[in-house]
Amino acid sequence: MKTHSMRRQLVHGAVSAMIAGAAVAGLSGCSSSASPADTPATTVGMDASWAEGYNNLADLKAHSKLAVQGTFTRVIAQSSIKTIPVTDFEFTVDKVLHDPGHLVTAGARLTVRQTGGTVDGVLHQIADDPLFKISENAVLFLKQPEPGLFYVVGGPSGRFEVANGKVSPFAPDGAKFSGSPADFATAVKNS
């Protein structure tokens, strides 16, 4: 069930948003140092209309600068862009799966930006792409809109969960895969 107050699209490789209701106007210029991992009393859902969506590894790989496996280690900052809350997370790379431009190595700490965040004690997040959690292990397909900043390609379709020795897609309509991290690395390499 979706009750949402915003629509968001990825445009020209950068995150931008379309406001769906006047209720969002109160977010203008707000930011909070609270961690999205904290459980706020209220959550406001946002609706996304993804400009990019991928249902196979070959397309994800072709539209990404980087694919990495690792862990979210901390929240770096929260802010707003045109009244839309965003959160910058630190992601520590355990393994590089795809990197034709030689951007990173294992052990690198990347800044990954995601739409959503806690503003005045209220959590704002996209229903089908909830905020990352600290200690969450994931595989991410990333773009780099500016040096030092990354975002996940295709929202939830570029995000994979790693749990109990198994990689699985975060988005139910994303690329189909179920297997070990080693099998996933091989599938990415061969796609």
Rank of each mutant, 00 (worst) to 15 (best):
L123E: 05
A17W: 11
A163E: 10
Y151D: 02
A58N: 07
T118Y: 02
A187D: 11
G155Y: 05
P40Q: 11
H12S: 12
P36N: 06
T87H: 01
E136V: 05
D94F: 05
Y151N: 03
T83N: 12
V96D: 09
A23N: 14
K143E: 13
S135V: 03
C30A: 12
V122A: 09
D47V: 00
S16N: 11
M18C: 05
L142N: 04
N137W: 00
V112Y: 07
A185H: 06
G107D: 10
V167I: 14
S178W: 03
A23F: 13
R7Y: 13
V15K: 03
A14I: 13
L140G: 07
W50I: 07
P169R: 08
G107Y: 09
Q114R: 02
A77M: 03
T71W: 02
D183I: 01
L103A: 12
T3D: 14
S191D: 12
P100V: 08
F184I: 13
G179T: 12
L110H: 11
T43K: 12
S157M: 05
R113G: 01
K2G: 13
S5I: 14
G29Q: 02
A67P: 02
K133C: 03
A187Y: 10
G70T: 07
A17S: 15
A163H: 04
A182D: 15
G13C: 03
